[in-house]
């Protein structure tokens, strides 16, 4: 079946393509500017499982024809984003500008995604990782640009060894991926500049 056929049963995208995208963009900007602090937005969005509405909203605002997208699932969720974003779908994680990870426990290594180059660090991938849950004010200690002293956050459902890999990613600066962690309809920014310790 072609994409356009499957879309006959397709859930709608953002109600107002311009203004909703702007609101979501602003939200993601805030999340990235203040790492470790979760933000949320009221959005009437009902994407197919296993997409969190926040993940879907971020994709609809950020992903387009010029940014290949990689998803760890096929089927309705992939078709939904493919259709509404009008983006090319990356066959391998390394080819993606944006990646959606719905099953964090089974996610590829961070190094599998584009790290950018020293000349063009902005070409690295941005990962949208759906975690199991978030708790602020406890857990890991985050420091770095955008954080006055430190913030603490606990993120459930990430694979073992994730934070060691994150330390490697941080050390690559100016290269390295950026991440947006999504759980419970909220999103937390984790740019490559953020240092994370136990």
């Amino acid at each position: 079946m072609s994409l356009i056929e499957t879309s006959s049963k397709m859930a709608p995208g953002l109600a107002d393509a311009v203004f909703d995208s702007q609101r979501v963009f602003r939200l993601v900007l805030d999340a990235m500017a203040r790492p470790g602090r979760s933000v949320a937005l009221d959005l009437d969005l009902d994407p197919p499982a296993p997409l969190d509405p926040m993940t879907a909203a971020a994709c609809l605002a950020l992903v387009d024809f010029e940014t290949p997208l990689w998803l760890d699932v096929q089927g309705a969720a992939a078709d939904y984003l493919h259709f509404h974003c009008g983006c090319p779908m990356a066959a391998r994680p390394g080819e993606a500008a944006f990646a959606v990870i719905t099953d964090a426990a089974a996610m590829p290594e961070l190094g599998a995604f584009s790290q950018g180059s020293d000349e063009a660090p902005e070409t690295s991938a941005t990962l949208l990782i759906q975690a199991q849950g978030l708790a602020e004010g406890e857990g890991l200690r985050l420091t770095g640009p955008g954080i006055e002293n430190e913030v603490r956050i606990r993120i459930d459902g990430l694979p073992p060894g994730f934070w060691d890999r994150w330390a490697d990613n941080h050390a690559l600066f100016p290269r390295g991926v950026d991440a947006l962690i999504v759980a419970d309809g909220r999103v937390v920014g984790l740019p490559r500049t953020t240092r994370v310790e136990d």
């Binding site: 079946m1 072609s2 994409l3 356009i4 078709d79 493919h82």
Partner: peptide, 9 residues
């Protein structure tokens, strides 16, 4: 990848 093959048209 979503299949982009023949349409029913």
């Amino acid at each position: 990848m979503s299949p982009l093959d023949i349409l029913a048209a």
